[in-house]
Amino acid sequence: MEKDEFNRLLATSRIVLNEIESDSIQKDTEDILKFFDKIGSVTVETGEKAFHPVDIPEKLREDSAADRREIENVFENGDTYRFYFLGPKV
């Protein structure tokens, strides 16, 4: 992986590294991807994929706001102003 490509990946990942960390993690990334390439030799003919290890019947939650504590939890753990929690500019 070229340095430019790695830097683009860092930007996409929203990770900032110093120079020493960057060199070390770039090397690790290349080694790990080489290790992952091992699966290239497997032929998966069936096209079936295991998104979960066991069959999970499709279930949807009731469309209702039942647990208002969840909202309070967000307020308890973040900076707030009146009825809002504070975050960065979008």
């Binding site: 929203r14 990770i15 900032v16 967000v74 753990n77 973040g78 900076d79 929690f85 504070l86 975050g87 960065p88 500019k89 979008v90």
Partner: peptide, 20 residues
């Protein structure tokens, strides 16, 4: 950096820089 645990607090940063 603003919802759980560690709070960066520098809300002058734009979203990407804040996140990073």
């Amino acid at each position: 950096g603003f919802k759980y645990g560690f709070r960066l607090k520098d809300f002058s940063l734009d979203y990407n820089d804040f996140f990073k």
